[in-house]
């Protein structure tokens, strides 16, 4: 047995995170009460960064699983593998975190297949157990185990809705894009942008978010603004940077694309 089986998942350098409310205290409280946490919010608004920051702050190893439509319960819990000696069991990422004590972060959880939900139920309530049916094991959670899942309620994708039986096992924190001055501060710091450019990018993002009513899935995220700022820092003009980092990636639809390019053109 290795001394620290999750050593690779420990975060040693502080990830930058700009608190926008009381989310750090809220996370701490959920952690103390050993309650699973649900993070809701649009993509690119800082959910993943927040979890990384909290894992660093709490000195917990962080196992992140990016969920996708093919992710099944077996992918999370573990499965039998075959080698020269026969079959052997290998823990999935969730089972590893439960067994050894760590923060398991299921990103965009509602993208995963429906059978994963069932796996979480006994883990997310007072039982705190993970049933590894195929392995014939009932795994009791390590005291350090913490479950965090995120999902994006506004996302237009075709994932499922969360059932009340799942929803009510979690405590939830709502995330949104930060207020314009805070968001500009983040863009300025992370994207190494001048204050004026950061503020202009944030205003552009607010304008793209209004296109949601016209069928755009999501407006520009804070992450995209940072990308645009980094491109501008690397030498592109602000307009080129915004086209490349914001307007083009946001939509393939010709009409929305034209509207996005028009917004960029008007902004710089």
């Amino acid at each position: 047995m290795v001394a620290d089986p999750l050593a690779d998942w420990r975060i040693t350098r502080e990830p930058f995170y700009q608190p926008v409310g009381h989310e750090i205290a809220a996370f701490d409280a959920a952690r103390t009460a050993r309650l699973p946490l649900l993070l809701k919010g649009p993509t690119g608004c800082g959910k993943t960064r927040f979890v990384e920051h909290m894992a660093w702050r709490l000195q917990l190893p962080l196992i992140t699983v990016a969920c996708h439509e093919d992710l099944s319960a077996g992918d999370l819990a573990g499965r039998w593998l075959l080698d020269a000696q026969g079959t052997h069991w290998m823990d999935g990422p969730l089972a590893q975190a439960v067994r050894h004590g760590g923060l398991c972060y299921l990103d965009e959880f509602m993208e995963a297949r429906a059978d994963t939900t069932v796996l979480l139920h006994p883990l997310a309530d007072t039982r705190r157990v993970l049933s590894l049916e195929r392995h014939g094991e009932l795994l009791r959670a390590h005291p350090d185990f913490q479950l965090v899942v995120s999902y994006n309620p506004g996302y237009q994708g075709l994932h499922r809705e969360m059932k009340p039986s799942t929803r009510q096992r979690f405590v939830a924190l709502g995330f949104d894009y930060p207020d314009p001055p805070v968001e500009a501060g983040i863009v300025q710091r992370e994207g190494q942008a001048a204050p004026g450019l950061a503020a202009q990018l944030v205003q552009l993002a607010i304008r793209t978010r209004r296109l949601r009513d016209e069928g755009l899935e999501e407006g520009a995220s804070t992450r995209m603004l940072v990308h645009a700022a980094l491109l501008a820092h690397a030498g592109l003009s602000p307009m080129e940077a915004a086209l490349q980092a914001i307007a083009e990636p946001l939509s393939d639809d010709p009409e929305l694309g034209a509207a996005l390019r028009a917004l960029v053109r008007a902004s710089f």
Partner: peptide
């Protein structure tokens, strides 16, 4: 018609 849609989308997005 396309121009009308484009004008509507952009005008709306600029100041809501």
């Amino acid at each position: 018609v396309d121009a009308a849609g484009q004008v509507r989308r952009v005008a709306r997005a600029l100041w809501g």
